[in-house]
Computed example of a mutant assay.
Amino acid sequence: MRTLLFLLQKEFRQIFRDKAILRMIFVMPILQLVVLPWAADYEMKNIRLSIVDHDNSPYSQELVHKITASGYFLLNTYTQSFADAMHEVEEDRADLILEIPPRFERTLVRENEATLFMALNAINGVKANLGGAYLRTIIQDYNREVRLNWVQLPRFNPETRIEIVPSNWFNPFMNYQYFMVPGILVILVTLVGSFLTALNIVREKEVGTMEQINVTPIKKHHFILGKLIPFWILGLVVLTVGFFLSWVVYGIVPVGSFVTIYVFAAIYLLAVLGLGLLISSYADSQQQAMLISFFMMMVFILLSGLYTSIDSMPEWAQLVTLLNPVAYFIDVIRLVVLKGAGLSEIRQQLLTIIGFAVVLNAWAVFSYKKRS
């Protein structure tokens, strides 16, 4: 026990002496948590729109006004030439083209229907899809308004109308920050747990102290615990700092219990610490450890459900996410923060993470013994 305490004291001194590690542990997570949620916005704004109006009627001008007043679109050009509007798209000065045909108002009044043409610059697929969806929704709203104006009371409306009243549960204002900030916090905790652990142990190999430790009477499990426990504690500290910043900057307060989050986080950190130890056992230099960690973190982030729903991924990708511990923690932290889930509701994810912790640490210890 005294040996372990001595190793822990030595590790904490070594960590707090290294200013680069301190920046990576505290400064980097704070900056990322403050900056990234503002950039990772699911809403698309400032979509550059070119309108080709061949009609120039009150109805077409009212439609244009409704589109530009929505706040999603910037009117780039308003012209009567489709070739001019297409040139704006080719020069990357416009994202969408809306063409209003001749006699638009006349056709709409006489035949009760009219056709609009919409061209999308699909180089940026996300912007094209969302911009097109926004534009279609605005046109549909305009269509309903026109029809309501035509119905003069007490005239009977022959069309059956179904009115839908939505209710957003757990995130009533659809604030994307409530959805993104917990997920980004999980990524930061993962970086501290796995990435820095791997670099710290590999550094011992590079400076030659690993061989010196191996010939001392220090037991290997004491050495491993001495390496992992400091980063386990620092991971929980980063999580605490992250929740404090989430409250101060974004006003996010978990609906559920902090106990549920910290119980899961404590076990999750054991799993990612085992992953860091596993990386360090196969890497011979910090550069190798960084490249391996970078590759694995990219896979973990892209297949975690942070930016893209797992249900919308291909079947093979959904199977891969079953082996991604980050996906489980992001799912859990969102359930607790937004829905107020308890330990009983996350027991499946909890048991899975316990399995990850056992397997990764056992593999890491076995590999470390074999290579030492």
Results as ranks from 00 to 15, higher is better:
V320Y: 05
A122K: 12
Y142I: 02
A133M: 11
M1G: 15
L196F: 15
M210P: 03
G256E: 00
L234A: 11
Q212Y: 14
V186H: 13
A341D: 08
V181I: 10
V238T: 13
S60H: 06
L22H: 07
L4N: 04
Q80K: 05
V202F: 00
T77K: 15
L98W: 06
Y142M: 04
A133T: 15
A271G: 03
L273A: 14
T160D: 15
I47P: 05
L277T: 10
S372D: 09
R203K: 12
V126G: 02
A266E: 00
I252K: 13
I184F: 01
S372Y: 11
N171W: 07
M44D: 09
T107Q: 10
A20G: 07
T308M: 15
R334D: 12
S57Y: 08
L319E: 00
I353A: 06
I229W: 05
Y178I: 07
N171R: 09
A85T: 08
L239T: 11
E11Q: 14
M297T: 03
M298C: 05
I138P: 11
L8K: 12
F195R: 05
D331M: 14
G276P: 05
F295M: 12
G183T: 04
Y42S: 09
T216N: 01
P172C: 01
Y368V: 06
W316P: 01
L120H: 10
Y307W: 13
S312H: 09
L306I: 14
M313F: 01
K227L: 06
D92Q: 13
H221R: 14
D141K: 00
T321S: 07
T3Q: 14
